[in-house]
């Protein structure tokens, strides 16, 4: 192969393993020290990777189910108490189901492991779940709870009654809350269509509190936080615009028409978000 070295320059870009290495590949048997060593490495790497993949799968299911629960919670029309209660009941049981099955499986996978090694595999599902959980509590009680309280959703007991828990990183909690404000924005606009303007102001204020709190955070070096804060700011501006329109046009336009007014207003300054 080296005879044509000069003529076949492109070969340099994609070298083949040379003759000697090839011979060695063929002659190395299973008992060779190197073979043994690397086989055990391979097993260790595979094990890690497989566990990671299993968790990613579990996390993906959590994300999907959480999104569905969020959708369900949006279907609530505040007028009908009875319907509201039944939806809330369903949401609660589905949230608990995620906690008791999907998250429990992840926690079981991670027993005796360094959770941070696999954190990236389930952070998305975790954030989505927190988002759904916050929306549920907010819809039900008008408030969200602290990290300590939500931590309970990730604490389990096994058959021998010994406790174990899933790593619940505070960043995931805060990022979940940031996502949750997006849902509040959606809720605010939905409320508007039903003509309930008081709730719009309340929702807007609540998101404003959260935004203010985010402003107070020290720099964390966590890129996700700044990225989500940007989205949060946009949602908040949108809500503030809604409130502004209600205030200024509320008396001129019938309430169910307000949405059209705001939408046409938005088209001028929109950033691609569609309702």
């Amino acid at each position: 192969m080296l005879k044509n070295k000069g003529r076949y320059r492109p070969r340099k870009l994609k070298p083949l393993v040379g003759k000697q290495a090839k011979e060695l590949l063929e002659t190395l048997d299973d008992d060779h020290l190197i073979t043994k060593m690397f086989k055990s490495f391979a097993a260790e790497l595979d094990q890690k990777h497989d566990r990671y993949e299993r968790i990613v799968k579990l996390s993906r299911d959590i994300t999907i189910e959480s999104k569905r629960i969020i959708f369900l919670l949006h279907s609530i029309n505040t007028e009908l108490d009875e319907k509201k209660n039944s939806v809330l009941l369903e949401a609660e049981s589905r949230l608990l189901n995620i906690s008791n099955h999907n998250f429990r499986s992840i926690a079981t996978e991670l027993k005796d492991q360094d959770g941070y090694l696999y954190h990236r595999a389930f952070t998305d599902g975790m954030q989505e779940f927190i988002e759904a959980l916050c929306l549920y509590h907010f819809t039900k009680e008008g408030i969200i709870y602290s990290w300590d309280k939500y931590k309970e959703y990730f604490q389990y007991k096994n058959e021998e009654n010994s406790a174990f828990e899933l790593l619940f990183v505070q960043y995931d909690f805060i990022l979940g809350i940031a996502d949750f404000t997006g849902e509040l924005m959606r809720k605010c606009i939905n409320t508007l269509t039903s003509g309930n303007v008081d709730d719009c102001f309340k929702l807007c204020n609540f998101v404003r509190f959260i935004y203010t709190a985010f402003l107070g955070l020290p720099p964390t070096g966590n890129k996700n936080i700044s990225r989500k804060m940007y989205v949060l700011k946009q949602s908040l501006s949108k809500m503030e615009l809604v409130c502004y329109n209600i205030q200024i046009r509320g008396s001129e336009v019938p309430k169910h028409m307000l949405l059209n007014v705001i939408q046409s207003h938005e088209e001028e300054s929109d950033d691609g978000f569609s309702l």
């Binding site: 008008g142 408030i143 969200i144 709870y145 602290s146 990290w147 300590d148 505070q170 909690f173 805060i174 809350i177 204020n205 609540f206 509190f209 959260i210 709190a213 985010f214 107070g216 955070l217 020290p218 964390t220």
Partner: peptide
């Protein structure tokens, strides 16, 4: 400070700040 604001600040963001620090 209204009730929801208090909760957001003291229950949620203050512990998070401590955590970051």
């Amino acid at each position: 400070m209204s009730e929801p604001q208090k909760i957001v600040i003291t229950d949620i963001f203050s512990p998070f700040q401590e955590y970051i620090n």
